[in-house]
Write a protein that binds this DNA or RNA. Structure first.
Lengths: 214, 214, 214, 214
DNA sequence: CATGAATGAGTGTTCATTCAT
DNA sequence: AATGAATGAACACTCATTCAT
């Protein structure tokens, strides 16, 4: 949402007078996105080993040289891809928290689980690949963890009376964040065939609610 | 030429008595272990990019050629490494389940969490690398998931009366397995600096117990 | 062909009115000098491999495109650099010859050696690099040779009586030119540590004088 | 097949004294020579720019990988080429000095000039390229200078009475070395068209003799 | 004329894999 | 079975050059 605000303000400034240098920035973003999308496409259709810088350039419709204007090396491309995903999830979580301020923690968690599971169900193959085959420093995952815990800390704090008073916000947000994240992943990507998504989701919710009420 | 002599004597022994082929199998295991240990050592000291088959061979004290006797290609080495870890965790879980047959589910879960957290705390750097930088098909993780769920299914089934009767074993073991696994990982590897291992562990236990009692 | 056109038009204009078009030409020379100086600067501070056209452009304060206005390709930049140096040396030699018309050949040679040694002593590192690492067709060195021999031919011819009459001007200027050039280089750049510049210079002079008197 | 022969002889030798490890070393030298010869061939037929590591490998009849077993990088190949030439010249000079121990200094110098001029006349194009287009640190040239001066120091010292007694060996060998080297080069490679090799050589000799007698 | 973003051919180099011994 | 020298396909990355603005 922070992003959204920035963009809108750009919009406003752009229509007045002293605009400058924005084209490059927009161009940059577009190229970066094109590159990351190309990586995704190749990843899904041809596998990790087919993701060579030259192939990415072709699929992205840019020249190899241009890729190196935006990424210092190949590894950085993968990092950016992970970051983009982590960012999207972070924003999803935060916007859900915001959208549920006036609802109970239970309702919030339900929506969170739904949102995350849906997000990952869209392209299970891709997310599985991202996690297993595409190398990535631990950094982006940790940043996401931090964001999740931050969101939960907020959600908990603003619901003081709903919960037992001697609850430790730090511990609680830690556990909540990891429960929600891993159960979402599991429900979307690692479900045993005998379990429907709906069943997995409702059971996950039961677990989180039980914890919140404990 | 030393080599040649060894080979010939093997030849001779092989064609004589009852015992058979065990030496080779032991040799095999030893070589495989040596290779995997070498990978771990290089991984920690020099990073993923230094893990080349030739370097592995040197560090493991075998020839590159020998590596290809036991692994079809490089990727298989990484898979074996992941499998070895998954296997160790699987055995840890199963032995804990067995060792706690006469204890309550709560006690079992507590010991499970302790065991897993300790196992990962021993070499956090390594496990972080394994998960982020060392490529691995989803297979071994899924096999581990299945084993965990199997263990939990067993543990739950044999404790029917302790739990509410209308509990769905399938759903329950799914959630338990993922909660225990992810909270252990988180406690050992992704804990926020403000949280001690002990605190993380106890909170994780609280969460699992709350779920079990719900 | 662009080049050719430019040259021809310069030719024509040059022979028609009194002054014209000088600003551009001055601009040109300035840019060319800026480029060559940039190359020298990079060469000394960062080594030959750092001399890329883009870097040269930045250091010279012009755009890459502009460089290509004055040089057909990268190699031409290096050639121009060598030519500039050869030209400076040629001019130094010729002006010394002129300045010593009324002196003996011995005095002339002494001043020649001094001048050349001093010229190269100023930036030994640079001249060493120019000769070893910066590629250059043999052309500019040969042009310089020719100029040196020409200067010596002149100097000898105008001093007929000072020398033995059956001296072969052609042979003599050939040997003189190469002796003076190589001994100057050696004295300035390849002197053994045990030899002072002064000693090297005086010994070089002795050698040339001995030859002249033979 | 050459290999086979070598091996057999090693075999024989191996059973006699302690000698070892020669096969590798001979093989090494052969490969190194093949690579350097390939560079020379490409240099002459196709120019410096055609000297790529892959092309060298093909022409040398080895794999690129093998080149990197003997040379750390491309630049090292060029250095080795220069070193090989410098070494050959050094040996030529030294053997000439040895072969002329009982002759006068004048005769020695004459033979030295002849030898060096002939050596460079054999492949003028190549030597011109080596000096102008093939990058090379100053090191090998300096090593050669040192060797030449050493040879001259020796030659002078052992001819004390032939020369004026107050002669400074250090200065003298410095000048001699550079005179002989540069005049040989000039006679072989940079002679003006109006001068025959013989004329250039005789004039060079005159100059050196004049210096020696001064 | 100047600019400098974009290009992409081409290079040095690595490293998984093989196979003669 | 073991070895490790040799292989060469394949890759990441650079940088001389162009051309639309």
């Amino acid at each position: 949402m922070l992003r959204k605000l920035q963009i809108s303000s750009d919009w406003i400034q752009a229509s007045v007078p002293p605009q400058r240098r924005k084209p490059q920035q927009r161009r940059s973003r577009e190229t970066v996105e094109a590159v990351l999308d190309a990586v995704v496409r190749i990843l899904k259709k041809e596998g990790v080993d087919a993701v060579t810088t030259n192939r990415v350039a072709v699929v992205a419709g840019v020249s190899v040289g241009s890729i190196y204007q935006y990424f210092p090396d190949k590894r950085a491309i993968f990092s950016a891809l992970h970051d983009r995903h982590a960012d999207a999830m972070g924003r999803l979580v935060e916007s859900t928290v915001v959208a549920n301020v006036s609802r109970t923690l239970g309702e919030l968690v339900g929506n969170l689980l739904s949102g995350l599971i849906d997000a990952h169900s869209g392209d299970q193959q891709l997310y599985a690949l991202l996690m297993t085959e595409v190398p990535h420093g631990a950094a982006s995952a940790q940043r996401l963890d931090a964001r999740l815990q931050g969101a939960f800390r907020l959600a908990i704090s603003s619901r003081g009376r709903e919960l037992s008073r001697d609850l430790d916000v730090e511990r609680c947000s830690f556990v909540l964040a990891h429960m929600v994240e891993s159960l979402s992943h599991a429900a979307a990507l690692n479900r045993p065939p005998s379990l429907s998504v709906a069943a997995a989701k409702s059971e996950a919710l039961r677990a989180v609610l039980a914890y919140l009420r404990s």
